[in-house]
Computed example of a mutant assay.
Amino acid sequence: MDVISSSRNTWSGTGACPKTIEFCVGDVKALCAFLEEMGLKHQAGLKRFYIASNKNFLIES
């Protein structure tokens, strides 16, 4: 299972509304695209914690 599918499944299990899930999955897609541009091809170690931390950093910046 890839990171994006895993993210969708994780958010679906939280009881979040569908629009929230789509926004969060969109954030994961954008983060994965950014990481690929930076040369990171394998994202198996990408955890929800890192995504949330990155999102918080972007909000605070």
Rank of each mutant, 00 (worst) to 15 (best):
V3D: 05
F49R: 15
A16E: 05
H42W: 03
V3A: 14
D27Y: 11
D27E: 15
I59H: 08
E37K: 06
W11I: 02
I51R: 04
T20G: 03
I21S: 02
K47W: 05
L58A: 13
C24M: 14
K19L: 13
A33T: 08
K47A: 10
A52Q: 15
S53F: 11
I51H: 01
N54Q: 12
A30E: 08
T20S: 12
L40K: 06
G39A: 06
M1Q: 11
F57W: 11
C24G: 09
T14K: 09
G26I: 00
C17I: 11
L35C: 07
I4C: 02
T20M: 07
F23Q: 07
A33G: 04
T14F: 05
N9T: 10
M38P: 00
M1P: 10
S6A: 15
K19W: 12
C32P: 03
G13C: 06
I4D: 00
A52F: 08
A16Y: 09
V25Y: 00
H42R: 09
F23C: 06
S7Y: 04
S7F: 03
A33Q: 09
G39T: 03
P18I: 05
R48Q: 14
N56Y: 14
Q43R: 06
S12V: 09
N9H: 08
N56W: 10
H42L: 04
E60F: 12
F57S: 11
S5A: 13
F23K: 04
T20C: 04
L31E: 06
P18T: 07
S61L: 15
G15S: 06
C24W: 10
I21T: 03
N9K: 13
V25E: 00
S5W: 07
